[in-house]
Design a protein around this nucleic acid. Structure first.
Lengths: 350, 350
DNA sequence: AAACATTGGGCAAAAGTTTACGCAGCTATT
DNA sequence: AATAGCTGCGTAAACTTTTGCCCAATGTTT
């Protein structure tokens, strides 16, 4: 059955005018008399005319699509960022094409190729964990396709990016623990070639130094940020001659692992050991005690990155200096790091 | 700078052959001599030729894109389904266009329009919570665009769908509680116009009846499945003259709310009250005690729905009877519903 | 009255690909 | 020797929209 879609020329024929006139009337372009415009719009509505995007795209060289490459789309952080991206993009009349790199730089390269191939008008990328170089983005630059990186970036390259102030996040988390009176604070650190984990650690160290405390290498455990790593790491910390009295974990998952071990050992949180995580995962309000964490404003990051991309697309050709937007994280204090009498101070309703 | 992309005609000119020959050589289509094909491929590689998808799409009337409409893309369930969809689609050479309805039927209607407009070759939809009729999908049928619904569907319409056997899920959860010796089992039920919640309740009632127990209306609480609803509902249940000894919640969130209240009141889980949730959210392994739940195999659902859609697309024109694929949920027994000496039996590593 | 500007809209090319059709030139069959 | 069939490739149309250019008609100025 499949009714043939009405095309611009169909309208033109029925109205005895030229297709170009119809096109201009529909786009409110050049000066077309109001009478003609009205006739065109009326018939368009009657026939249920829908512009053919591919034809328009072909002609204009634009597709009205934005491409997004994320390490994976499940999980709290990226799904929320993508939510923000989709919302902003669709408001601006753009579609969103989503690819997952699966934390694999090879996939990432393919994804980028794929998106260029699909002729997206702009690209948003958060790097995979295994990405250590930038070659595969050269083509993007050569094709002059605007690109904005978010959250995970490679340092030393001048690119447009929206990132979180992870250093401030690490600093605030640690400072909070210090303010609460904890003195020997351990840190679960992630892969240091990723800006985000490096900065969280730097913020941690900065807070310690500012407080006149030494940075004890023994208390910094590098791992992959899985829950299991938190379990192993915590056992390791507890086996130290002088165990810490608090842990600042660069991920809520490792913090959850820690919590589990501590409970098993009959240790009280936060009395015997305080915990602060990072990311403000959904479950951080569901643990017992509730987990203090750093909120990343994921959705805002999606919006921000999209806005930046759209702006750069508008400026095409003018090539301003790459811009960095830095978002501020927020400390969500909860029971896992608060001394007894205090309650949850910053309750962020989602 | 923006290097002009090499087109098929550029190749043709340089090789002194017709564009059509190049096209056929690239697509390995009709009989083109091996020698010519090789020459074409060589030059294509040299010039970095990338086919122009919009032109091809325009000509063929296909876009190589699948559209997806979900209520929202954050949260455990949908982000995982989408992950599955994206993976399957990209393996088959399709891109994925994602829209969020924000649980709003008005948005949903727009999303569908938008996708038709973008000329997607097929559509995957999970209905918004506020969708109670099907009008906005008529256009899809008229245009003969294949469509597959997943998880949330409207009953009484003959459509292609991939759903979970929610009834079996509800049945197994309740049966499990009964097997564990619980006798008075309450149920947090979701909006009943949605198939998923209705079926979960039906499964619950079926298990009760099968066990010779009455269905006590007093013990079934209808709500919106937020954590807050679980908190309110549990208080209500505890205030009954004869409170239940177990709750089967149609969502992990309400179950988490329940858990919180029970702890506050000093009640033991599962000794005083057992809990079973639904969805196997990430956090269900992080609560104390760990929450028994029903896993929905979200990613598998994404794969399954995509496969079905692709198959229907292949059969275009032949119009077979609508197909329903029913996936089986899995009970993940954990401490919140197991009598003391038992441990987690089915540990599903994610 | 002639020159000019403005308005409204048509013509045709262009974007890059696919494909039905056809045409040579050759081999094989009758 | 004539017909048929195959191989390899070219021609041209088609898909739909946009846009630079042009033209006619009307209105305005000198």
């Amino acid at each position: 059955m499949a009714k043939k879609r009405a095309s611009i020329t169909d309208l033109a024929e029925q109205l005895n005018i030229a297709a170009s006139t119809v096109s201009r009337a529909l786009n409110g372009h050049s000066a077309i008399s109001e009478a003609t415009t009205k006739r065109v719009l009326a018939l368009a509505k009657e026939l249920g005319y829908q512009p053919n995007n591919m034809a328009a795209g072909l002609r204009r060289g634009r597709s009205n699509m934005l491409g997004v490459v994320v390490p994976h789309i499940d999980g709290n952080f990226f799904s929320q960022v993508v939510k923000g991206i989709e919302a902003s993009a669709s408001k601006a009349g753009y579609h969103v094409l989503i690819c997952q790199s699966n934390e694999d730089v090879v996939h990432e390269r393919q994804n980028v190729e794929t998106l260029l191939n699909a002729q997206v008008d702009g690209i948003l990328v958060s790097l995979s964990r295994t990405t250590r170089e930038f070659k595969h983005f050269e083509k993007v630059r050569k094709r002059d396709v605007p690109i904005v990186f978010f959250d995970r970036i490679l340092e030393g390259y001048d690119v447009n990016a929206v990132v979180l102030d992870d250093r401030a996040g690490g600093y605030r988390a640690t400072k909070h623990l210090l303010t609460q009176g904890y003195q020997r604070i351990a840190h679960f650190a992630g892969p240091q070639h990723l800006n985000i984990y490096k900065h969280r650690r730097q913020g941690y160290e900065e807070a310690l130094r500012e407080h006149g405390l030494p940075v004890d290498e023994e208390l910094i455990l590098f791992c992959d940020m899985k829950m299991q790593d938190g379990i192993v790491g915590t056992k390791q910390l507890l086996a130290l001659p002088q165990p810490p009295d608090a842990i600042f974990s660069a991920s809520d998952f490792t913090a959850a692992g820690a919590l589990q071990v501590l409970k098993e050992r009959g240790l009280q949180v936060p009395a015997d050991m305080a915990l602060v995580g990072f990311s403000n995962e959904l479950f951080s309000r569901l643990t017992e005690p509730m987990l203090t964490s750093i909120d990343q404003h994921c959705e805002a990051m999606g919006h921000s990155a999209t806005r930046l991309l759209l702006q750069i697309m508008k400026e095409q050709g003018q090539h301003f200096a790459p811009r960095h937007i830095v978002l501020q994280p927020e400390l969500c204090m909860r029971a896992s790091s608060l001394h007894q009498h205090q309650v949850e101070l910053s309750y962020k309703k989602k």
